[in-house]
Write a protein that binds this DNA or RNA. Structure first.
Length: 849
RNA sequence: GCCCGGGUGGUGGAAUUGGUAUACACGCGCGACUUAAAAUCGCGUCCCUCUGGGAUGCGGGUUCGAUUCCCGCCCCGGGCACCA
């Protein structure tokens, strides 16, 4: 008997499949139900495919093969998210153009994917840096532009001094650039924005419509960060101006004792500009100095213990709309320019930040004692409420006294209380529940209910080379114009230097400048920025059904049949950016009539990370990266696929232990040996377990519980090794193993059906035999699964005291009698009679004495 | 501080509409085969004071019965962090 030789087998079938074009599907076949399973496409880096990719792609490949065997027309495409910084940085270092590097890396990735037996149709692949693709990225930008979903503004953006580009909020991690770890600074530059905030509510609400992991949904909701409250206007005394604030606590409006403007609030600049106002402000130098300081420190403030600072604008006052009280206005950087209206009403008695500001800034100024500033307008409903609010404080025997003491301090304006309660010191609202007062006081103050979001509009301008050019040109007087569709793709120029200078590399290109002037006229200049690469990946899944269409991003007919994606598999690290942006794109496209569905991914599952044996992330710098190629070389693609799916549930992290794969290899060897051995009639036990295995493996695949599917098949093979199996039964097993081990099963399948076939009904020659991967998924027979006997456990007072064998089909009474007559049971019942007997059919019998 | 996960043998993990905890695999130990080793095969492998008792991070509760449900903690991982 020949030994299992994975190298020979896998190479042979990969070549054969390629020749037979088994990955081709008919995208216009409407006779079958469709299924669209999608992998998050990789960035083709120089390092090649890693084990994380391997897991995710093996998982989707199994699912794809399974669905196909179930009779679906399955789309399972792959592509490359090839624009991006690492390739550009490589160009800066080596001078090799990104186009060249990208081509080479894609070749490597493709080869690796093929060697894993992943059945993608690479003729239909997507490469986001190819003009045929990015033409449509630009076209979509144009559609958004025409429909008011894109705008340009100059604003402080996150700037990475090392990458020399602006980046999105989502790409800042802990104040550092997610790519290079450099500290992010704020910089005022003009750039293009997508109006993702227009869709904030839909992005929250529509999560109800999709089957996604709960934590992913919750994280998206938190990221969007909706808070409900009210917009309230405070007039400024003696000036035709007002300050609008957003608050979630309009019920505390009577307690507003001062206002705070963010240093970048437009009103601040306008007050300082106008002579009249200037002369009214008595401490103008102080104010100007403070603003300058805050501009300078931006990032420092985070590190420096967050002590609150601020300065009063002396000489002007705001008027509280509910009680007409005059209150001072401060500038302080604890109020953020970008959130809400950039201004707040401060209620120190009921807000921790305002309280702190009062303690640290106002009392340190030449002001009255802070008590006069802290006006209580809500008191706890009861001492119990207060206790709950103060749960962090320790109270002993005198708990009640201490609570009372605290309450007195609250009412005296020396402590704060941020909970709900009963209105006091609030005019006609006294005695009302604070929750109820929110609405009432908003109305009384002439304000309106409003929501605010943590989510910002998506800044997409990048001052880099290797990205999709923004299809905009500027007229000689600086007006932005969309480049008409007939000039798309608006190609990335090639005559540029790659060294980042802080201005976009595209500004270097003579060709681009000439092209622009030739088409649009003298003095016209192109947009030099390129798009964030997340734009490329926000719509790629819409392209696969019609990847080569030159007239549309995807034909209506193909859209209607294939979209949206049925199952999407990828890492949880994309929860915030990619998944949010892709959802935004689909919603925006639906709004402007380009799509007729609102959610891109009906079902989403994550794969975990693959960690090294010590539980650390694999990285080049740690030198602990495991190369899948070496594993494939040594153990074969089939073993690598199965081991990585067997190691842990798909969503969990895998701690990669190099020794564990031998277990899977042994399993495959056993399958090989059984395949080569003489076949008999199956034993009754094998017949029974085969049916159970078919059922369980099918269910497990449907639920993406591959680890237990694999263990089930191992159990089956262990049982067969101890018994006998018929050829027909073994072939059934091969079919369910086929999605996991496509090469091995194909080889055995042909050997059984071809040269060695002894089946009289099967007169086909070897060449005519069809691939196992075109077979139907086997049905199981519920009758054969049914066991003839059951072992049931007998509990007495909650402890298991005996096991009894019963025949299937006995009545409950008969089982009870059997149990009660069992010697062991009688011993433990000790002559007592049973008070209660609970029988769970074929599982357990519980006797209470 | 807030939000989201998670804690089961030496290791990865299995089992949840509450029903025999530790399947499957790695590792380890013993044995067979071998001149020997590797490979392979067989047996064993949660702990203990072992006719029994105790274990699913800890402490309570509900129940005939809890890894699963409830209450209160501890620990680990991830995310957010002056968001008014």
């Amino acid at each position: 008997m020949k030994k299992y030789d994975h190298k020979k087998i896998e190479k042979k079938w990969q070549e054969r499949w390629e020749k037979d074009k088994v990955s081709k599907i008919d995208k216009d076949d409407r006779t079958k139900e469709k299924y669209y399973i999608l992998d998050m496409f990789p960035y083709p880096s120089g390092e090649g495919l890693h084990l994380g990719h391997t897991e995710s792609y093996a998982a989707s490949d199994v699912f794809y093969r399974y669905k196909k065997m179930r009779g679906y027309n399955v789309l399972h495409p792959q592509g490359f998210d090839s624009f991006g910084l690492p390739t550009e940085n490589y160009a800066i270092k080596t001078g090799i153009p990104p186009v060249k590097t990208t081509k080479k890396n894609i070749e490597t990735y493709t080869k690796q994917m093929k060697s894993l037996g992943l059945n993608y149709d690479f003729d239909e692949k997507i490469d986001t840096s190819e003009p045929e693709y990015y033409k449509w990225t630009q076209w979509l930008f144009g559609e958004f532009y025409k429909n008011g979903l894109v705008y340009k503004k100059t604003s402080p953006i996150n700037w990475c001094p090392s990458c020399q580009t602006g980046i999105a909020n989502e790409q800042v991690l802990g104040g550092e650039c997610e790519r290079c770890g450099t500290e992010i600074i704020q910089k005022e530059i003009p750039g293009w924005f997508f109006k993702i905030t227009d869709f904030a509510d839909d992005l929250i609400n529509d999560l109800d419509k999709v089957d996604w992991p709960e934590h992913t949904k919750k994280n998206q909701i938190n990221w969007i960060g909706k808070s409900e409250g009210a917009l309230i206007k405070f007039p400024i005394k003696d000036l035709e101006k007002e300050i609008s604030v957003f608050t979630t606590r309009p019920d505390t409006l009577f307690g507003a004792t001062y206002m705070v403007l963010a240093p970048e609030h437009p009103l601040v600049a306008s007050l300082l500009k106008t002579i009249n106002h200037k002369s009214q402000i008595t401490n103008i130098e102080e104010v100007e100095k403070y603003i300058k300081e805050t501009q300078k420190k931006t990032e420092m403030e985070r590190i420096e213990g967050k002590k609150k600072t601020g300065v009063e604008i002396k000489g002007i006052k705001a008027i509280n709309p509910v009680n007409k009280e005059e209150i001072p206005i401060f500038i302080a950087d604890y109020v953020l320019g970008g959130y809400g209206t950039g201004a707040i009403m401060a209620v120190p008695a009921h807000d921790e930040r305002d309280f702190e500001f009062t303690q640290t800034v106002i009392t340190s100024e030449t002001r009255e004692p802070s008590e006069n500033f802290i006006k209580n307008v809500i008191k706890p409903n009861s001492l119990n409420d207060l206790k709950k609010y103060l749960e962090f404080l320790e109270y002993g025997e005198t708990e009640k006294e201490k609570l009372n003491e605290y309450l007195m301090l609250v009412l005296a304006g020396k402590r704060l209380y941020t909970g709900n309660g009963i209105m006091v010191n609030s005019g006609k609202f006294d005695g009302m529940a604070s929750e109820e007062a929110k609405q009432k006081i908003t109305e009384f103050a002439g304000g309106k209910s409003s929501s605010n979001y943590r989510l910002r509009d998506w800044s997409i301008s990048r001052q880099r080379y290797w990205g999709c050019p923004i299809p905009i040109v500027y007229s000689p007087d600086g007006e932005a114009n969309l480049i008409p569709e007939k000039y798309l793709p608006w190609k990335l120029p090639e005559d540029v230097g790659f060294k980042p200078t802080g201005i976009s590399p595209l500004a270097d290109s003579k060709e681009l400048k000439e092209r622009t002037e030739k088409i649009f006229g003298k003095g016209w200049v192109p947009e030099y920025d390129t798009m964030d690469t997340f734009v490329d990946s926000s719509w790629y899944f819409l392209r696969y059904p019609d990847a080569h269409n030159l007239k549309e991003f995807c034909s209506k007919a193909r859209q209607k049949y294939w979209l949206p994606v049925d199952l999407y598999i990828g890492g949880a690290e994309h929860t915030y950016m990619h998944l949010l942006f892709a959802r935004f794109f689909v919603k925006a496209m639906k709004k402007i009539g380009l799509l007729d569905f609102g959610e891109p991914f009906l079902k989403l599952r994550h794969q975990g990370m693959v960690l090294d044996a010590r539980g650390r992330k694999m990285s080049k710098s740690k030198g602990n990266v495991i190369n899948p190629d070496k594993l494939v070389e040594k153990f074969g693609a089939d073993a690598v696929r199965i081991q990585i799916l067997f190691a842990a549930p798909l969503a969990d992290d895998i701690v990669w232990n190099k020794d564990n794969i031998v277990g899977v290899y042994r399993f495959l060897e056993k399958v090989w040996e059984i395949g080569a051995a003489e076949k008999n009639e199956s034993s009754a036990a094998v017949k029974n377990i085969l049916q159970k295995t078919i059922k369980k493996v099918g269910q497990d695949i449907e639920n993406l519980k591959y680890n237990t599917a694999v263990s089930e098949m191992m159990k089956f093979i262990n049982a067969v090794k101890k018994s006998k199996i018929s050829r027909a039964d073994f072939e059934m097993f091969l079919k369910i193993l086929a999605p996991f081990a496509p090469h091995l099963t194909e080889e055995i399948w042909y050997s059984l059906r071809g040269t060695r076939t002894t089946n009289a009904d099967d007169t086909r020659t070897n060449a005519e035999i069809e691939s196992i991967h075109l077979e139907k998924w086997p049905d199981y027979d519920e009758k054969l699964i049914k066991d003839k006997t059951h072992t049931i456990a007998v509990q007495i007072n909650g402890k298991i005291r005996a096991e009894i064998e019963i025949e299937d089909g006995l009545s409950d009474e008969e089982v009870k009698e059997m149990a009660l007559s069992d010697k062991r049971v009688q011993k433990w019942m000790d002559g007592k009679s049973s008070k209660k007997i609970i029988y769970v059919k074929n599982k357990i019998l519980s006797i209470v004495v």
